[in-house]
């Protein structure tokens, strides 16, 4: 009983190995299907499985701990995205950041941050199973047009440089749209909306012969 109370804030919800996990798009791949990439495909789509941790607090308070734990500096400017080797950090609001981490890593990072920060006024919320990353690659023009058909935000490279991420409207839902490098766009999508976003992108991407690659880390893993 008392044990439960002490651990309440830092509850490791990630299942042990051997428990089958289903990504938010696992069923969509089955019931909607995955058009195979072909020679005409100008856009490729895949789901990437990560852990997601929301960080709340003051930038100055969080920055040092984040550097120590993740080796990344906390994005200080609005809409900034720092992309590291294994993790990324994105500004969501003046007191809110999104850390995208290797799957199964959220609890370790949260615990490490909490211990580094001691009594500081911060908050962390694990939302790993609540959202997923849809990655889009392909030729620049087709990618940009697919995004223009989908989001209201200006995705021109002059306005949306690498290292930027925004929360915006996609079709009739919201997504986080990120540009981690020259090659890729990422959509961070809420789990319950993932099927809708997936179907939307397939439909809007038809003219670009969009193809879906099943990530080895996606779907059911054992």
């Amino acid at each position: 009983m008392s044990e439960a109370i002490e651990r309440a804030r830092t509850f490791d919800a990630f299942p042990d190995e051997g428990i089958p996990l289903e990504s938010p798009l696992a069923w969509s791949f089955e019931h909607v299907g995955c058009p195979a990439p072909g020679t005409h495909s100008r856009v490729m789509m895949r789901e990437r499985q990560h852990d997601h941790l929301i960080l709340r607090g003051g930038a100055i308070v969080l920055d040092e701990a984040v550097r120590a734990v993740l080796g990344l500096s906390l994005p200080a400017r609005p809409l900034e995205l720092s992309q590291g080797e294994r993790a990324s950090l994105q500004w969501l609001s003046p007191d809110e950041w999104l850390a995208v981490l290797p799957q199964g890593d959220a609890f370790r990072v949260e615990t490490a941050l909490r211990s580094a920060l001691g009594d500081a006024s911060v908050a962390f919320s694990d939302v790993s199973a609540g959202q997923t990353v849809i990655e889009l690659t392909g030729d620049d023009q087709a990618l940009r047009e697919l995004l223009m058909k989908s989001v209201v935000y200006d995705v021109h490279p002059r306005h949306f440089a690498v290292g930027k991420g925004v929360t915006t409207v996609l079709a009739k839902t919201s997504v986080i749209l990120r540009r981690p490098d020259e090659r890729r766009w990422e959509l961070v999508v809420r789990r319950s909306f993932a099927d809708y976003v997936y179907r939307w992108l397939l439909d809007a991407g038809e003219e670009f012969a969009i193809g879906v690659e099943r990530d080895v880390t996606a779907g059911e893993t054992t």
Binding site: F11, A13, F14, P15, I19, P20, L21, S128, A129, G130
Partner: peptide
């Protein structure tokens, strides 16, 4: 079922009830 869970004894039916919260990836299991 082997998955970390928070269990709440709240009832919207008037019967003995357990509300189980698990990470959604493992929900189907």
């Amino acid at each position: 079922a082997g998955v970390p869970a928070r269990v709440f004894r709240i009832s919207f039916t008037g019967e003995l009830a357990y509300e189980i919260n698990v990470q959604a990836h493992a929900a189907m299991h």
